[in-house]
Design a protein around this nucleic acid. Structure first.
Lengths: 197, 197
DNA sequence: CGGCTAAAGCCAATACCGTTGCGTTAGCAC
DNA sequence: GTGCTAACGCAACGGTATTGGCTTTAGCCG
């Protein structure tokens, strides 16, 4: 059987509905606990029929995950450029903390983690971070400095911040600064071999 | 008003019911996603009336959180004692990864994170880790070695592991080893001041 | 512009969850 | 053993999420 290509309709109304749903989820996530976040509620807030949501996603968690990754992926933050790796790391650490530290973003993060099952090669919400880290490193090496690897920055700067936020551990700018300092120290010492993971 | 002390009944039947519920939650968590984990389901699996669960916890999330912290707190792991800080860190990193890397434990971790709302001074699932870290440090300093702080070990060894697991990022023993090596390097260099946070 | 049909809306039926009131069982203290 | 009552089991209720059938709207293509 020659299965005909299903022609998607992405424009006009569909786009409008989808956008309304996204913004509705965003609003509701910004307001309170995700516990009471149910499909009928989202539908009403979006001025959309619940059936549409059921048809398109089928499950709240799927919708939540989709919105969460969308929200966590598009951070238009520019990588800081202070002239030194230490300054860049510190500034960037503060930015990341500021970003994921807001209640809404924290809920998004938790929702995304909760929705996750099994192993996925790389989490979409870290992709942007990797790009940023790589940019910092590149600039640093262009200046002739010793720089840590992307993996090291992710593991020792981003992961602690994400972990703290996820666990609800209070974290302030000073903590971010210390993490940045530690990573910088790690770069200065080539102790752990090539470490180009 | 002399509020009479409510005499709890912890023995016999109550204990049996509670144990059945705990094991039921454990089984169900080991099987699949927590999405479909509802009170009636747990009750049926435990051979217990749903009312008992509602009365005692009132909410699934509370029950889940309680079981999760119970499961994540009681790790009877002995802190490894290899004779050197580097060896201890590496062995411990492997243990921790082995622990939280199992599907069941990972789901527990995710459930606990999802249940979290707002900021709490310290996450119960990290308390035991802190104790272990402190023990490692103590032994190390007794040998006259330079040791990192507890916070550093948590931030740079435990958090990356937890973060990776939570995000579903594939992690193997080699990754754990590298993290341990990095922390060790961090200890060797006193770059970031006293750092006794 | 007009036809085709994907996608949204509407409505009713269903299923399941959470809740409450009351009778029954069985710890704990004496 | 006996009494008291905490904790469990049972059953019925109310509400809300979910599903299916059908109609209506409006993208996309010629």
């Amino acid at each position: 059987m020659t299965s005909v290509a299903p022609i998607r309709r992405t424009g006009g109304r569909s786009a409008r509905v989808l956008d309304a749903i996204y913004t509705a989820v965003g609003q509701l996530m910004g307001e309170g606990k995700p516990d009471k976040l149910t499909i009928p509620v989202v539908a009403e807030r979006a001025g959309v029929n619940p059936t549409s949501i059921y048809r398109r996603w089928g499950d709240i968690d799927e919708l939540l995950e989709e919105v969460a990754v969308a929200a966590l992926t598009q951070d238009g933050d520019r990588a800081p450029d202070t002239g030194s790796l230490g300054g860049d790391l510190q500034a960037w650490a503060r930015i990341v903390l500021e970003d994921i530290g807001t209640p809404k973003r924290t809920r998004y993060l938790r929702a995304m983690v909760a929705a996750r099952d099994g192993l996925a090669p790389d989490c979409p919400c870290l992709a942007q971070r990797r790009v940023m880290a790589a940019e910092l490193i590149e600039r640093s090496e262009a200046r002739g400095e010793r720089a840590p690897s992307v993996a090291q920055i992710i593991d020792h700067l981003v992961m602690p911040l994400y972990g703290r936020v996820l666990m609800g551990h209070p974290t302030d700018q000073a903590d971010a600064d210390r993490l940045a300092a530690d990573v910088l120290a790690l770069a200065g010492e080539g102790c752990s071999g090539p470490n180009d993971r």
